[in-house]
Nucleic acid binder design. Structure first.
Lengths: 332, 332
DNA sequence: TTCATGGAGGTAAACGCTTTCCTATTGCCG
DNA sequence: CGGCAATAGGAAAGCGTTTACCTCCATGAA
C-alpha cells in the first residue's frame, strides 16, 4: 500500500548535494550555512518530507527525550489524572510521555518494562509491582520513579501516605458519630495494610467496630458485587469505606437498588477524589490524594534527575479530606 | 547515582567467551547450542541482568513490535475505554502499546507524532487533527488508522457514524414526547456538524424545535458552565442533549443545583455511554458508541495491516441506544 | 603580499544490534 | 577409516544518526 521507504538523512544529503554531516547539523541547528546550502537543504527536506529518525538519533546520543509512565489501569480516573499532570509537565519541558497500561497483569510486567526502558530517558512506574522488578528497575542506569508508597528508600517515590489518608477519613467519620465501620479493601495492593493500620489507629481508641471485606479488583463492578455481602452482614455497618471511589460508588449504587437510603441507612466514603465522585448521588465523601499533583511532581523530579540534578528520594503529598453528602446524616 | 552502563550484547559475549553473533542467536532462540555454550550464555545473561536494547534491534530489523495510540484526552473515559480495548488486543498479539495524550493541543501534534512514528510499527490516531497532519500520516511508510469519522477513503478508519448516532437518539426522544430540544455541541470537533445533521434529519420532519449551544471543551466543567445559559434561555428546552456524557453530566448536576427536577422539568441525554453514566442520578440516557470495541477492532485491523494483510479501509460500528431514567418522565 | 584566524563543510567512527555468508567441527554411513 | 552432510559458531556489513576531528577557503591584519 505505502511502498515508499521513509527518506533518510542520506537521501536529503544527496538531493541537496552536501554531506550527511551537514544535513545533521542543519536539522539540529548547530551552525550557520551559506545561503545556497541552506536553501537547498530546506527544499530537499520539504520535498522529501524528511523527518529525523528518533530511534537512530537516540542510539547515538543516548538520549530519547521521552519518558515512560506505566500505570496499573488507565481506566481508573485516578491514574488518568496522574497522567494528565505528568503529561503537562513533560510537554512543557520538551519531553514526550509514553503511557503504558499494565492491566493489573503483574506477571507480564517485566517484559513490558524491558521494552520501555531503552526507549526512554526515565521511567515512572506505579508501585504494586513485584519486588524483583522493583529491584531491577532501581538498579537501572536511568532514573526511575515510583508512584505510591516507598518500598525502598533509595529511589524516588511520590504519593500520599496511606496510613495518614485512612486515618484522616476515619477521624472525620468518628466525629460524625458513626459506630460500626465497614472497610472494603483491595488486599492485592500493598498499601491495603497501611490503610487498615490507619483505620485501626483511629477506630480502636474510639472503641468503634470495624468489619473488613475485600474486593478482587478496584472497580465499580467489584464494588457492586461486594455491596450485598457487606450490607446483608448480620452486624451491618452504618458507614462503609471503599478501597477507592470506584468501589464506593459501585457499592453505593447497589445499596440504593437494594432499597437503602444513603446516608441515613448506610453512609459511604471513598478515597482518591476522582472527578465523578462529585456527580454521583449523593455526592461522595472522599480523600483527595492529589492525583494530578502527583503526576506533576513526579515528572518534575524525574526530569531533574535526568538532567543530573540529584533529588530527595521520598516525597509525600498532603491528602485532603473532602466531605460531601454521602456521610452527612440529616439527624446530625 | 547509577553509574553502571547497561550491559550490551558485547559484554555478554565477552563474559561467555563467544561472539556477539552467538549471543544474538541465543537471545532470539534462532539455533541450538552446545551444552557448554548454552550454559555460559545463560549465566552471563543472568549475572549481568542483560536485556536487549529494543532500539538497536528495531534499527536493524525495521520492526519495533510496538504500536502507538494518540488520543485527544486520556481523562475522557471514552478514550480510556478505547485504550483498554486496543491494549488487550495488542498485548495478546505480542505488541506493546504506547499511548500519548495530545491534550487537545492541535498545534503541537505534528512533532509529537513525528517522534512517535519511528518508534512504532503502526499508528492509531484519533481523528480531529489538522488536515495536513492527516495527509502526512496517510503517506507514511507504515500503517496508520484513524478513530472516528473517515476524512479520506484510502485510510483505515474505525468508529460509529455520527449522523446515525445523533439520529438514533433524536428518534427515541421524539417518541418520548419531547417538544423543545436543546443541543450543546462541541463545534471544534468536525463530527459536530454530522451530529447536528443527524438531529435535524429527525427533528425537522417531526416539527420539533432545536436550540443549539456550544461548549469550548468536552468536559464536565464545560457542561456545568453551559447549563445556566441553556436552562435560563427564554424558550427553555424540555430535553437537552450534551456533546458527550461528560458535558451532559456536568449540565445535569448544575441543573439540579439550580433547582430543576430531572427529568420532569428538563431531561438530559448524552453520547458515549461512559461507565459513570450509569451511576449518576438519574442514570443518564445515552448512546453507546462501542468505545472498547472500537479499540479492539482498530487494533486488530492495524496489526493485520502491519503483517501485510490488506484490510478494508472503513469500518463503522453500530451504536446502541441506552435508555435510562434521565429521559423517562413519570407522566409518560 | 603573507599569514594567522575562523567558520563552512566533509570524513569516518561509533551507537547496539541482526543477519548473511563462511569456516570448521562433528556425527554418521558405508 | 574415509567421505559427506549437517550444524555450531564467527566475521563483517549495515540500520540512520551524531560528533570529533580535519580540510579548505575566505577574510582581515600586518
Amino acid at each position: 500500500m505505502k511502498r515508499p521507504k521513509r527518506p533518510t538523512i542520506r537521501d536529503v544529503a544527496e538531493k541537496a548535494g552536501v554531506s550527511i554531516a551537514t544535513v545533521s547539523k542543519y536539522v539540529n541547528g548547530q551552525q550557520s550555512f551559506s545561503q545556497g546550502v541552506e536553501e537547498r537543504l530546506r527544499d530537499a527536506i520539504n520535498e522529501l518530507a524528511y523527518s529525523q529518525n528518533s530511534l537512530a538519533r537516540a542510539m547515538v546520543t543516548g538520549r530519547t527525550t521521552a519518558i515512560g509512565l506505566a500505570v496499573m489501569d488507565l481506566a481508573n480516573p485516578h491514574y488518568s489524572n496522574v497522567v494528565k499532570g505528568a503529561n503537562r509537565v513533560a510537554l512543557a519541558n520538551g519531553y514526550n510521555l509514553f503511557v503504558v497500561d499494565m492491566e493489573e497483569s503483574l506477571a507480564a510486567v517485566r517484559p513490558l518494562l524491558e521494552a520501555l526502558v531503552p526507549r526512554t530517558d526515565g521511567l515512572i512506574v506505579s508501585a504494586r509491582i513485584p519486588k524483583d522488578v522493583t529491584d531491577w528497575l532501581a538498579e537501572l542506569d536511568k532514573p526511575v520513579a515510583f508512584l505510591g508508597q516507598p518500598e525502598r528508600d533509595d529511589v524516588l517515590t511520590v504519593g500520599t501516605d496511606s496510613v495518614h489518608v485512612a486515618a484522616l477519613l476515619a477521624q472525620y467519620l468518628v466525629r460524625q458519630g458513626f459506630k460500626r465501620f465497614g472497610y472494603v479493601g483491595y488486599s492485592r495492593a500493598p498499601s491495603n495494610s497501611d490503610r487498615l493500620q490507619g483505620l485501626k489507629q483511629v477506630l480502636e481508641p474510639a472503641g468503634v467496630e470495624l468489619l473488613i471485606f475485600d474486593v478482587d479488583e478496584p472497580t465499580n463492578e467489584a464494588g457492586e458485587r461486594a455491596a450485598a455481602r457487606v450490607l446483608l452482614h448480620p452486624d451491618r455497618p452504618d458507614v462503609i469505606i471503599g478501597w477507592n471511589d470506584l468501589v464506593a460508588i459501585g457499592m453505593m449504587n447497589e445499596a440504593r437498588s437494594l432499597g437503602f437510603r444513603i446516608p441515613d441507612d448506610v453512609a459511604f466514603a471513598g478515597i482518591d477524589n476522582i472527578p465523578v465522585s462529585r456527580y454521583v448521588t449523593p455526592p461522595l465523601t472522599t480523600v483527595d490524594v492529589c492525583s494530578q499533583a502527583t503526576g506533576e511532581v513526579v515528572m518534575k523530579k524525574i526530569i531533574a534527575l535526568i538532567e543530573g540534578k540529584p533529588q530527595p528520594t521520598g516525597l509525600v503529598l498532603e491528602p485532603a479530606l473532602i466531605t460531601r453528602e454521602s456521610t452527612q446524616r440529616r439527624s446530625t
